[in-house]
């Protein structure tokens, strides 16, 4: 119990230890999460995602420096990929966050994705809750460098920032139905590189087409409503800003911070924040359930049974599809009674 109190009181060592327990899913992790949960809900949850090498960590370095100047405290989770082969990982986000080290108002934790493919690790949401409960004003999650569809961050953040850079050309086109869909704010970093205006106009066009498509249903109504009503509807729609930055010099970071605050205000005033909170809770519940069911299943089926199943698959006596179904049947008949 004292560890929980220490976390709430802002003891950094206790916080670090709790994050390890959560990440390893040790037996006391449930107790910590349950007790910490009622202290959550105050932090602004910010997700930063984008393809590898666009400057996410450097951007966070500059943005966090500015946030600190404004007096905000920051809890930061930086996710990097685990090796599929060795399960090891090199977590190098700290290299770019030099300016943030030694500041008591910032806590940085690196996490390996540990086999999860959505851009986060399976315990990232729980770690966010811990940082939230520890009282940080803003909790920032930096995802793994993602491709097109690793968008788990969207259900974990209140504000999602997608970072791109000039010269991506057609890959922006490719990203339109995945990554760009979740963006509340788009950042074109490295905007001192050539082609920045071209990239910006590609993106602007894509967003405009998207919002035109969304509002076309309501279009006819809008056409006959009076001007006042129209501006009310306009206020409810968040127009995704495209911000150009040079993270290494800090250029554009002030603009980004301003839009970040504006987005937070926007979702609070429109009630969108409640919808996002609910979808986050649902995502946590479902992923927790999936993970626990699998763990339970593998614990309850004896190791012999497990190995035998693998063996019959390897020997070609059955196919992996049937074997999986058989496992569930075996589980149902042997472990699930009639009582509910």
């Amino acid at each position: 119990m004292s560890l929980i109190k220490q976390i709430i009181d802002g003891d950094r060592r206790a916080l670090a230890q709790a994050l390890t327990i959560i990440e390893n899913d040790d037996h006391s992790s449930q107790n910590i999460l349950t007790n910490v949960y009622r202290h959550t809900g105050c932090a602004h949850l910010i997700g930063i995602t984008g393809i590898p090498g666009v400057g996410k960590s450097t951007l966070i370095n500059s943005l966090s420096k500015l946030m600190r100047k404004c007096g905000d405290t920051i809890g930061l989770l930086a996710i990097d990929p685990s090796s599929q082969f060795s399960k090891g990982a090199i977590l190098g986000d700290r290299i770019r966050m030099k300016d943030l080290l030694g500041d008591e108002g910032i806590f940085i934790r690196s996490m390996a994705s540990r086999g999860v493919l959505g851009g986060l690790s399976s315990t990232t949401a729980a770690a966010v809750d811990i940082l939230d409960a520890a009282g940080f004003d803003r909790v920032i999650v930096e995802t793994v460098g993602v491709g097109q569809s690793e968008v788990d961050i969207a259900s974990n953040a209140q504000t999602s920032i997608v970072v791109l850079c000039p010269g991506l050309g057609d890959s922006i086109q490719a990203a339109k139905s995945g990554l760009l869909e979740i963006a509340d704010i788009i950042v074109i970093n490295k905007s001192d590189y050539p082609e920045v205006n071209l990239t910006k106009s590609y993106l602007r066009e894509m967003i405009d087409i998207g919002s035109a498509a969304q509002t076309s249903d309501a279009g006819e109504q809008n056409a006959i409503s009076d001007i006042n009503e129209k501006s009310d509807t306009d206020n409810c729609v968040w127009e995704v800003p495209i911000i150009t930055t040079v993270a290494t010099t800090g250029e554009g970071i002030g603009d980004l911070f301003e839009r970040l605050l504006a987005h937070h205000d926007h979702i609070k005033s429109t009630g969108e924040i409640i919808r996002r909170h609910r979808s986050r809770l649902r995502a946590i519940f479902e992923s927790r359930l999936r993970k626990q069911l699998y763990t339970k299943l593998s614990q309850m089926l004896s190791e012999d049974y497990w190995l035998r199943q693998l063996e019959v698959i390897m020997e070609g006596e059955t196919d992996p599809y049937t074997a999986a179904t058989n496992c569930i049947k075996h589980f149902e008949t042997n472990y699930i009674g009639d009582e509910d």
Binding site: S82, S83, F85, S86, K87, G88, A89, I90, L91, G92, R94, I95, R96, K98, S110, A112
Partner: peptide
């Protein structure tokens, strides 16, 4: 080498 041996390595730079 440590990563390849299955460790999670936090590198500071």
């Amino acid at each position: 080498a440590l990563r390849d041996a299955g460790l999670e390595v936090i590198y500071t730079g």
